[in-house]
Design a protein around this nucleic acid. Structure first.
Lengths: 237, 237
DNA sequence: CCAAAAGTGTTGCTTGTACACCCATGT
DNA sequence: ACATGGGTGTACAAGCAACACTTTTGG
């Protein structure tokens, strides 16, 4: 602690403290076939070589944790400028049996349809439905659980589909996404009214006729306009 | 990244990565004289010796970040078993000019009336009203802002007074606390009904007569009983 | 008596929910 | 024609904000 070594009062005073490996681990969520999915990798090195794992990497000297996470995302999905948010830190000394590694975890949301599938395949990546996850390395199951909670909390105030759905989507697709996130079903009529009342969606003049006979209007998220912040907050579920 | 060095496939593979100083910084909130206050310290070593700072410490080899934060809290306030929660990580490479330090930040809530005032005085600690904070070292102002947001969010679902008020308190005291946290005023009648509807307070048979002529019943938080979780969620503000 | 806080009641508005009901159309 | 999803309307309950009103008692 500081007071014990106040005598030094130098940059030197940092030096008596230990340094640690610091990693970022990303819970990468996507949405496909009506299911919320998580991108997992067979771990590429010991310990636990080959077991399923979140994608992660070590924080380098010249980068922040966010930058490290973006680097990892770019290297594994080919995507930049994606939704990425800090979740929680995991720091039990023995959480990684290979070495003492402190891990900051992130939640990323991506559109499965536009990520680089070749890059993912190269790394042995696989999309797992969140309802049927395999057992994971170390404490990664707890990390995912925390990330999923954050996602639900986020979705309950922000209307997040933008990050997970294609550019244009029907309200049924948005509802299915929310049902996948919250693992419960919503009344179609009420969901429609709730979601439209927020005012952040705009209806297009095209219809999707593949999922119903009548055809459903496509919607998309309005471009974010500063100054015109959404007043109305709607809580799910 | 992992795949580049899959050849190693050894614990050795960690070794090519840099290590970092990892610190914990605590936003310690208390409540006194109708104001929400933050505990600050004059920094004890260079750089920025003497400037106001959050209390922090470095994570040691054998402890988690939570343990490090609890150690810091114990050393500076004499309190253990207090409310402590992870907030956010701050990791810009140049955030601390003395060295590259990655900081995990925590929010702590304590009852000012029971903390060790001698210990605090010894370290030069001072309680500052959150509405009149001095300028802080490095990025600590951003850390406090994040912590305060977390506190407000917490208070808007959990009814937190337990951590900040004395054992027994009147509803007016609780309301004043909430007004200090949210920096706005609440209708006394509505606040009373809202807060009692949650069902986590119990009325005692004693009255406080110092703050009003009529006298107001004291309340306290019910002991947490597992199984009997509060169903009702009430949102503030 | 009066000011000030304690405590209760009333009213009207906004939301959420359950559910009925018509529309359009591919099979 | 009918099943399926699209889309709208209604009716009721719940929750909340605003505010009126009554109680108590020290000064």
């Amino acid at each position: 602690m500081e007071q014990e070594n106040a005598i030094l009062m130098l940059t030197e005073s940092y030096k008596q403290h230990p340094k640690h490996y610091v990693a970022v681990d990303c819970s990468i969520f996507g949405y496909e076939d009506g299911e919320l999915k998580l991108l997992l990798y067979p771990r590429g090195f010991e310990p636990s070589l080959g077991k399923w794992s979140l994608m992660g990497g070590f924080v380098q000297e010249n980068e922040s944790m966010e930058e490290a996470a973006r680097r990892v995302l770019l290297q594994t999905t080919g995507l930049k400028d994606i939704f990425l948010e800090q979740a929680a830190a995991f720091s039990k000394p023995d959480r990684d049996p290979g070495a003492r590694v402190i891990s900051m975890t992130f939640v990323a949301l991506i559109r499965i349809d536009i990520h680089d599938k070749d890059l993912a395949r190269e790394n042995g990546a696989h999309w797992w439905p969140v309802t049927k996850l395999p057992s994971l390395v170390f404490d990664h199951e707890a990390i995912v659980a925390t990330g999923l909670e954050l996602l639900q909390q986020k979705a309950s105030i922000d209307l997040i589909g933008n990050e997970l759905l294609p550019e244009m989507f029907t309200l049924m697709q948005l509802r299915n996404l929310y049902e996948a996130i919250f693992q419960k079903s919503f009344d179609p009529g009420n969901f429609r009214k709730k979601v439209l009342s927020i005012g952040s969606l705009e209806r297009l003049n095209q219809k999707n006729t593949t999922e119903s006979k009548k055809g459903a209007y496509y919607y998309r998220f309005k471009k974010y306009e500063p100054g015109q912040r959404s007043e109305r907050i709607v809580k799910f579920p």
